[in-house]
Nucleic acid binder design. Structure first.
Length: 841
RNA sequence: GCCCGGGUGGCGAAACUGGUAGACGCACGGGACUUAAAAUCCCGAGUCCGGCGACGGACGUGCCGGUUCGAGUCCGGCCCCGGGCACCA
């Protein structure tokens, strides 16, 4: 039984119905002519089955901003889509014996329904699903364009292989020697033929343009800078000495890369990576087996013992003409520089450890301050003057480097070069659920691209699913067999699919023109909307996704498809939500389920709590009771509104004077809150303080309610302030404000309530007059210590404030007749009376 | 090891440019309403010391020092926590 005349606060009673209405009648862009465009993008989710709290946070942030900007009159583009290819669908297929496609599509339907239930205001007419041929055919199209320009190529090389994924991984997907999806699975090295994107062609530009990304968090640009890892140095050629016991070599030189050419007179050996291609020529089968054992199998680190193998070959130092041994060493990386280095034990710690172990000579060639360094314990890696370096003796390092590079170039023994840590992007995956690579192998013509007219190369649907997994494309004969597009002979299709990071590298362009059947998108539309004004997502994509997306944009620009050099103007990286201090995960059993929260507290309270708990860039720990607090707050707003539907007509602008102190207080508090929220939304997005301001205002409404009933506040002022409260809450709790408006519209007189949804109103301007305090609390300090608080007019002059402070009896007593050495007056804030310099009370 | 963040009540936090430390909320305690409970509404609260008491005093933003009339905020040094990278020659 209920004794309330009006129904209590029950979000369940109205949120689902409003969500339905919004689905049918979206807040689609109907901007005023000339409205500024704003492309607001949130990272699209992988359709794993249901939203998790990380999604809710990401999308609650984005939606608050979208709603605010729309009310501000912007033409907001706010799309959503699905990153729908990838391995989990195959794993689920194994578990449930279902095909990845229905599993994925069912997940999408469920998550989309959840998003609607949360009230996220996406423009679903632009929805993109990457596993559909309408989307992935453009992946293939881009692949072909890149192939034409030499940006997609095939090579045999050492690659990262995850035994759990049963596929190859890009370098970017291997962290610390383990798979990014299977942190307990060491990655193996295998030599395979793979497709690559030549991202290194853009390394320099990708690095340089980081300086222009002023709207990105510095730590993200720093991570990318380190990832690209540009280093300047020199490539040097060491001539291999002939050996009587071995056949002559096809190429008698070894190329090394060094950033310290100044130490070249200290070389004790040349070290090759165990995978170095020349080893097949230099070594016999027994020897090669020994070097193969040196290939780092798992995540080896700087702490791993350094091991080597003396090949018996010797090479000649181009500068000193000295003959040094050629070793294979486990710590030399094949995929950096040339896979060979010169070992200078005196001036490189790794070489020092290696040479000490194998008793190779350690000879200093750099002397800091002219004094030979102490090498008894470790290498000296700093700068200094050259010694033991023939004609270069006495030169400082930097001068020596320049002069040595010049000499090497003249002698045709090397040249100055720039090397990058960044590798070409390996995009081949030996999996089913991905974009087929549109290539054909013809016995006569070789590698032949699929002609554009034959796109998309469709993923075959009727594939066997067994407990062992989804059949690899290589096992599906009907897919493989194809006529060569050039000569018509029987040929075979490429059976690798593309890395799913290809999908997410350009999806935000497809939103702009999702139904285009002729091109990935129309250039004119991209010109209008790009770059993305604001991108919001997790920090975990700081490198992979965001560097690939930048690469794609530069390629698209060079293809003439777009005019922008960079895809994203501003980036916001949200913090993580943890539970009991740990990352939420099913295996830990500490997952907070958004669906359960909706059920219990509704969408508004859940969204509002996520925004209230902490500033959005910070991590925060989930607290169940926190949601209840927000639920209570929304109930307070609701009940207040139910008790006081507006009675007076809507009108613009605030009154110029207040009829009573109570009215004065309400008007000030309202405009102070409005100012705080407006300023936050325009700057740093600390939504927690926005909601705090609204809570303070609601507390004042409650405090002044008796005053309204007593007639101490006019209805017009009360109504204005309450309507402003709804408007300022609209970005955060869209259901609540709309439900209140709906009920008001039924009960209030004509013209007292907006005829359209709250969301479609203009964002109100705060009144600077009312937002400014009139009376302040003046703090009086003596020697910097707070001694009194006084009321004072906000417009009082320095002199008036000083006099006021000195006149206070408490201050008089403290001064005891002494003459202040100095008084500091900060108008509107405080007076500090200094008795003597440096005095500490 | 290197590069970023970050340390403020019992907890999440606020203080945006050096000017009242702890707004707002959670948890807690007290009261009103109720037969009772829930819900709701109101009040209290950094810590310590003194006082029956309105109140007064001292201390207080990781630690040590500095600049300043005044430091959570600026500078120097250190400690701790989190994240990223990690044999890149």
């Amino acid at each position: 039984m209920t004794n309330e005349p009006i129904a209590g606060f029950q979000p369940q009673a109205y949120e689902p119905e409003l969500a339905r209405q919004w689905a049918a009648r979206p807040l689609a862009a109907s901007p005023a002519p000339g409205a500024p465009k704003y492309y607001l993008l949130e990272m699209l989710p992988y359709p794993s089955g249901a939203l998790h709290m990380g999604h809710v946070r990401n999308y609650a942030i984005g939606d608050a901003v979208a709603r605010f900007l729309r009310m501000r009159g912007c033409d907001v583009l706010h799309p959503m889509g699905w990153d729908a290819f990838g391995l989990p669908a195959e794993n689920a297929a194994i578990q449930h014996r279902t095909h990845p496609r229905p599993w994925t599509l069912a997940n999408i339907a469920n998550m989309k329904a959840q998003m609607r239930r949360f009230g996220f205001s996406y423009d679903w007419s632009r929805e993109v699903t990457t596993c559909l041929p309408e989307y992935y055919r453009w992946n293939q199209w881009f692949f072909l364009r890149m192939f034409e320009r030499g940006l997609a190529y095939r090579k045999k090389g050492w690659v990262n292989w995850c035994p759990r994924c049963a596929t190859v991984l890009a370098n970017e997907q291997v962290a610390g020697g383990v798979c990014w999806r299977h942190e307990d699975t060491p990655v193996e090295q295998r030599e395979l033929e793979q497709w690559y994107f030549r991202i290194t062609r853009y390394a320099e530009e990708l690095l340089r343009d980081l300086d222009r990304l002023s709207g990105w968090p510095e730590r993200v640009t720093t991570m990318q800078r380190n990832w690209i890892g540009r280093s300047e140095g020199a490539a040097l050629e060491f001539e291999l000495e002939k050996r009587e016991d071995r056949p002559a070599l096809s190429l008698g030189r070894l190329r090394v890369f060094t950033t310290r050419i100044d130490t070249v007179f200290g070389v004790s050996a040349v070290l090759l990576a165990p995978q170095h291609p020349l080893l097949s020529e230099l070594l016999n089968e027994t020897e090669r087996a020994q070097t193969r054992a040196l290939i780092p199998a798992r995540g080896e680190t700087a702490e791993t013992e350094k091991l080597g193998f003396d090949t018996g070959w010797r090479a000649r130092n181009p500068f000193s003409r000295e003959s040094v041994p050629v070793w294979v060493a486990n710590f030399v990386l094949m995929n950096y520089g040339s896979g060979a280095v010169m070992a200078v034990p005196a001036h490189d710690q790794r070489d020092y450890e290696f040479c000490k172990k194998y008793q190779l000579p350690v000879r200093p060639v750099i002397a800091p301050g002219g004094v030979a360094p102490d090498l008894s314990r470790q290498a000296y890696t700093g700068e200094g003057e050259l010694i033991n370096s023939a004609a270069y003796n006495g030169l400082p390092c930097r001068e020596a480097m320049a002069s040595m590079i010049r000499w090497a170039e003249q002698q045709n023994a090397g040249q100055g070069t720039v090397t990058y840590r960044l590798q070409d992007w390996g995009v081949s995956r030996q999996r089913y659920w991905g974009t087929p690579i549109p290539m054909i192998y013809c016995p006569g013509c070789g590698v032949v691209p699929v002609p554009d007219k034959d796109l998309p190369v469709r993923l075959p649907e009727d594939v066997p699913v067994s407990s062992g997994g989804v059949a690899n494309l290589a096992a599906i004969e009907s897919f493989i067999q194809v006529a060569c597009p050039k000569c018509g002979a029987a040929a075979r299709r490429e059976t690798d699919t593309m890395d799913t990071f290809v999908d997410s590298s350009w999806y935000f362009y497809r939103y702009l023109d999702p139904d285009n059947g002729e091109a990935p998108f129309a250039k004119s539309i991209a010109h209008r909307w790009m770059p993305v004004d604001q991108y919001i997502g997790g920090i975990e994509h700081a490198i992979l996704h965001l560097i690939y997306s930048r690469f794609f944009t530069k390629v698209m620009r060079d293809l003439g498809l777009v005019e922008n050099d960079e895809p994203i103007a501003r980036l916001f990286t949200q913090g993580m939500i943890t539970k009991s201090g740990a990352k939420m995960s099913k295996s830990k059993g500490n997952v907070v389920d958004p669906a359960a929260l909706i059920e219990r507290y509704g969408a508004d309270a859940t969204r509002a709590y996520v925004l209230f708990a902490a500033p959005p860039e910070k991590d925060f720990d989930w607290n169940d009771q926190g949601v209840e607090g927000l639920h209570r707050f929304l109930g307070r707003v609701y009940r207040l509104a139910m008790r006081h539907p507006p009675l007076t007509r809507l009108h613009a602008g605030a009154p110029s004077t207040a009829a009573s102190p109570a009215e004065d207080r309400l008007l000030r508090k309202t405009h102070v809150a409005l100012r705080r929220i407006t300023r936050e939304m325009e700057s740093r997005w600390h939504f927690n303080t926005c909601l705090a301001a609204a809570m303070e205002l609601v507390n004042v409404f409650y405090e002044l309610e008796p005053e309204l009933e007593r007639g101490g506040i006019t209805e017009a002022v009360w109504d204005d302030c309450q309507r402003l409260l709804l408007l300022m809450l609209a970005p955060f709790t869209p259901f609540l404000v709309e439900e209140i408006r709906r009920i008001w519209a039924e009960r209030a007189p004509a013209g007292a309530v907006w005829s359209g949804e709250v969301q479609r109103q203009n964002w109100p301007e705060f009144s600077p007059e009312w937002a400014r305090e009139e009376e302040i609390e003046l703090v009086v300090q003596v020697n910097g210590k707070l001694r009194a608080r006084l009321r004072a007019s906000a417009s009082a002059s320095e002199e008036e404030l000083r006099a006021l402070a000195l006149a206070d009896p408490k201050i008089q007593a403290l001064l005891a007749g002494a003459q202040p050495a100095k008084t500091v007056v900060i108008p509107g804030r405080l007076v500090n009376i200094v008795l003597r310099q440096g005095a500490r009370a």
